[in-house]
């Protein structure tokens, strides 16, 4: 990553951070600074507005219910491109902000190979190589990058059809739809993973912090970098201290 981007991000994180605060208590780690959280939720708001206003023209069955939310069909058609533009522009900032932790690394292939074990909750803690983001999160991020490019490239001809011509428009409609469907499916999984599926995760995007045990469970390599401590050793120590039986089915329970 170029140092100019790094300087920009650091400055943005510092500047925006001045307007908010993140309280890190004992046994907690700073996960997402104020800047990241603000970007995430702004992207999320624009995404949901774009999604709902886009669904209005997606199907005749959805037209009346969804266009009504925005003050009718004409208003929906007027607003949707602006919501989409907002989504893409703010996501560009998030892209720069997260480019470094989202870069694909060698262990990510390894993680994908054991995705079945991950989905089936077979291992109580993640493998030691899982850093700030796991490969699943990275895939979702890069899917958003690709889809955001598709959205803007196909969305502008649909916004100004007289300039681009009818052939560009009807091809764009299909590509725009595909990107939207990928985003919708990914979004549902993302919300589930960030809330019910992984307790303790949602607060990382609201208060900005996570418990230490959350960090060594889900992102051991990041835990090691952030604390300078051994995630496995700390996990075992905590496990013995609490006297809780292991949830690892391969270990005999005490």
């Amino acid at each position: 990553m170029s140092s100019a981007v790094e300087r920009f991000d650091n400055q943005a994180r510092r500047r925006v951070g001045e307007y908010g605060r993140t309280v890190v208590r004992d046994n907690e780690l700073l996960r997402h600074p104020v800047y990241t959280r603000v970007l995430h939720w702004t992207v999320a708001i624009f995404f949901i507005l774009s999604l709902v206003s886009g669904l209005a023209v997606y199907s005749p069955w959805l037209y009346r219910p969804f266009s009504g939310l925005f003050g009718g069909g004409a208003m929906t058609r007027f607003l949707h491109p602006w919501f989409g533009l907002g989504f893409v522009l703010v996501f560009v900032l998030q892209f720069l902000n997260w480019l470094e932790p989202m870069t694909w690394q060698a262990p990510d292939r390894q993680w994908l190979r054991r995705i079945k074990a991950y989905v089936r909750n077979e291992e109580p803690v993640e493998p030691e190589y899982v850093d700030f983001f796991n490969a699943g999160q990275k895939l979702y991020f890069w899917a958003i990058v690709v889809c955001a490019i598709v959205f803007i490239v196909t969305g502008i001809p649909m916004w100004f059809p007289d300039t681009f011509g009818r052939i560009t428009v009807y091809i764009s409609v299909v590509l725009h739809d595909i990107a939207a469907l990928v985003m919708l499916g990914g979004f549902i999984i993302h919300v589930y993973e960030g809330t019910a599926s992984q307790p303790g995760t949602f607060r990382s995007m609201t208060r900005g912090t996570v418990e230490r045990r959350w960090a060594w469970t889900h992102h051991p390599a990041w835990y090691r970098r952030a604390t300078g401590r051994d995630p496995r050793a700390d996990y075992e120590q905590a496990r013995q201290r609490t006297g809780r039986p292991s949830t690892d089915p391969n270990r005999p329970s005490t």
């Binding site: 990928v182 990914g186 019910a196 599926s197 307790p199």
Partner: peptide, 24 residues
């Protein structure tokens, strides 16, 4: 419908596999 299938998949994943709690 395929995209929305993610919702019941997520729901039944929770019902059948449960959450990933921080350990311990």
């Amino acid at each position: 419908l395929l995209a929305l299938l993610a919702a019941p998949v997520a729901f039944y994943h929770y019902v059948m596999e449960g959450p990933k709690e921080p350990q311990p």
